[in-house]
């Protein structure tokens, strides 16, 4: 069925080229990602103090996620609303985590009945 939208700018023809965004250097991104993986493995191998290790590992994980989302999923070329949607998802998870935090991990273990 041909579409009668003329010039409202929406891309509705299914076979139209969707390559409206730029392309980063994918290979370089891959190298970064593998290097990040190396860092988290190194952290594991060298038995750093637990707190530091966990911090590094999670910073690296978020960094990797950022690299994949921004480059492979082309979020860096995307409309602002898409950014809002993705960050809203993260924000909502954070709210959930913080709201439940006092009730699950912080529950004093000793209140469990001692029979």
């Amino acid at each position: 069925m041909e579409h009668k939208f003329h010039d409202n700018g929406s891309v509705v023809d299914p076979d139209v080229k969707t390559d409206y965004h730029g392309h980063p250097n994918y290979f370089r991104v891959l190298i970064y990602l593998l290097a990040m993986l190396g860092i988290s493995l190194a952290v594991f191998e060298f038995h750093l103090p637990v707190n530091i290790a966990i911090t590094i590992v999670f910073v690296v994980a978020f960094w990797k996620i950022g690299l994949v989302v921004r480059n492979f999923m082309h979020l860096r070329y995307e409309h602002i609303l898409i950014w809002v949607a993705v960050f809203a998802a993260v924000f909502i998870l954070l709210v959930f985590f913080l709201g439940v935090f006092p009730d699950v991990p912080m529950v004093h273990r000793e209140v469990v009945p001692k029979y």
């Binding site: 469990v112 009945p113 029979y115």
Partner: peptide, 18 residues
């Protein structure tokens, strides 16, 4: 025992000591 210490209660207790 005041309350029947079932397997459930035991395992909670074991978890508790950690």
């Amino acid at each position: 025992p005041a309350i029947d210490t079932t397997a459930k209660a035991d395992s909670t207790k074991a978890a508790d000591k950690k």
